[in-house]
Amino acid sequence: MNFFFEVTLNLLSGFGVTLLIFAATLVFALPLGLVLSFGSMSSFKPLKAVVKVFVWIIRGTPLMLQILVVYYGPALIFGWGFLERVVAVIVAFVINYACYFSEIYRGGIQSISKGQYEAGQVLGMTRSQIFFRVVLLQVIKRIVPPMSNEIITLVKDTSLARIIVVEEILKVAYDYTIKGTIWPLFYTAVYYLIFVGILTLLFGYIEKKLNYFRV
């Protein structure tokens, strides 16, 4: 029983690292994704092309590889030092998830009919007024389901951090198998399930809150 308690606590501290990666990725990737989505819709062709290529590279390579590049790249290529391991993981996750988010945003923004922009112009609103006062809230409502999908994937992708020895929950559990105890590895599922359960409820609540907003 005592050992069970010890494992639970150790896994919990590992899950703290998991949550840190998760939260930091959201904080930075959500706005960065919006910037990228504007870039990919820009009427200035070179910018649009560069953003599209960037998104193609990031979405087209494995996240695990990107983590390795962010962590080892600066030292191997330029002879610089290292980021903190967990910082390197967060940088890689932010870039990766911003690209996925940007495509979801783009889909949401482009789904708003042109008529609404025209109506705004007729009323004498500026472009930024139209975007923030008319378009944005409708976009948010439409992208909640695909975003919740992506965010739940993010919870589980944090386990990739193990590739550069970040002490997230799966790494902690794995270290127990070396000492001859296998069950903590499967016990980690409880942590993921509880957290994703909370997120699912949260997204359900948000969807319901936005329900009044019919177009």
């Binding site: 870039g39 560069v50 953003v51 960037f54 030292a75 290529i77 330029f78 002879g79 610089w80």
Partner: peptide
């Protein structure tokens, strides 16, 4: 963005 995308291949770093 272009600069960020370009990957460099030369390795140096005399550690």
């Amino acid at each position: 963005l272009l600069a960020a995308t370009v990957t460099m291949l030369t390795a140096c770093g005399d550690k």
